[in-house]
Design a protein around this nucleic acid. Sequence first.
DNA 1: CATAAGTATTTTGTATACAATGTGATGGAG
DNA 2: CTCCATCACATTGTATACAAAATACTTATG
Lengths: 225, 225
Amino acid sequence: MTTRLDVPTVSQAAYETLHRMILSGQFVPGQWIKEREITEILGISRTPVRDALRMLERERLLVSIPHRGFRIPVPTVKELHDYYELRAELEGMAARLASERATDSDIQTLNNLWESAQSSLLAHDVTTLAERNDEFHRHLAACTDNDELVASLLRLRAGIDLYRNLSWAQKPRPAHTLQQHQHILFCVTNRNALAAQESARVHIMDSLSIALQGLATFQSNSGAK
Amino acid sequence: MTTRLDVPTVSQAAYETLHRMILSGQFVPGQWIKEREITEILGISRTPVRDALRMLERERLLVSIPHRGFRIPVPTVKELHDYYELRAELEGMAARLASERATDSDIQTLNNLWESAQSSLLAHDVTTLAERNDEFHRHLAACTDNDELVASLLRLRAGIDLYRNLSWAQKPRPAHTLQQHQHILFCVTNRNALAAQESARVHIMDSLSIALQGLATFQSNSGAK
DNA sequence: CATAAGTATTTTGTATACAATGTGATGGAG
DNA sequence: CTCCATCACATTGTATACAAAATACTTATG
């Protein structure tokens, strides 16, 4: 299952490796990503590394500053707020459209994902739990059949995952999350589009407060430097 | 007023030049952008050109295919539909939040922009008219004070402008556009958030039909090849 | 004449060398 | 001791050369 998928170019491979490294929290917010270091780690030259970094910049996993290079972004409180406010709107849109467009099979899949998450919670398997919850959101978006929306949400979620796995991140309350997912699913099943939209919005805004707490902790910690 | 602003790097300059060239319709949808050509046009080497192309890919003004290069995207009907559906949601969000957050000064600015657009229409100055209408949308988004939303809308609008100036694009009905802008502004002024959201949504969805007509014309024209 | 294989050419991908810029240390003046 | 100028070093920016892949063309073959 750990099959290494062959990618057509070195740049692409570097992109995927760095993508995993960033999202798994291997770097600290604010850290400068030096091209030389990456070339040594991956054993390739600077050209494909720069290519990969620009691709990562595209997803906001890095920010570039001319003549300074690339770094892991450090969100301000306002940026985090804006980020979540937008994501709340889009997840709400997804829930609304899913209520109108999801097939019975889609709803069955969402049910299965929710129950699998529930089992993982009871088994204290937080890794699988998080994975199932992510899948739940992804599949809800997929039900809308709007690829632009799916892509936008993927990007926003990646930007948030960036920080979720980091040292300062507060862990979400899993039972609370599951309960909210259940409520969204309930609305979608009953084709209650507006209620689904509102549930999804509330759900995201709840996680904002958790993120803000975590950021405050991080800032007071690193401010000690 | 045509002052050339100095940019810190050649890549950045190339990016801005190409950005203008693409948005002003200098390339045909589906056209391959060859690195060599760009180096000769701009008198620079391939490295900063590749850099600039990747930056443009970030805004979906280009798409890259490994070992083939970059090309101007050709939208399908479904892609165009998804694009506009998402933009309608975000412009609606912007109008809603603007109703709640716009200052009196903001509303005054929107009024001025609308009246300037109106004058341009009467003077048959379509260039200024389009510019003012764009500014109207930009400033409406700015009123929300959500930078993520502003950036997302900028990106979506650029993707649409890409096609608007092209040969196949139908011209919008200016009087109709102005009337809809006036209605949005009316709702914002009265702090009627939900009505503003709905007006903005309808406004965008109206322009979808125009775009679809244009795309159909383009496809039947180029299909003759 | 159509088709397919093989070769030539074009184009992108990668590596490396050099230039330009930014950072940090060093040392002197106030 | 603090501040500022200067210089050395580190890092990114750019150009160019070569490698690999894709395309176009030619030619042989049915």
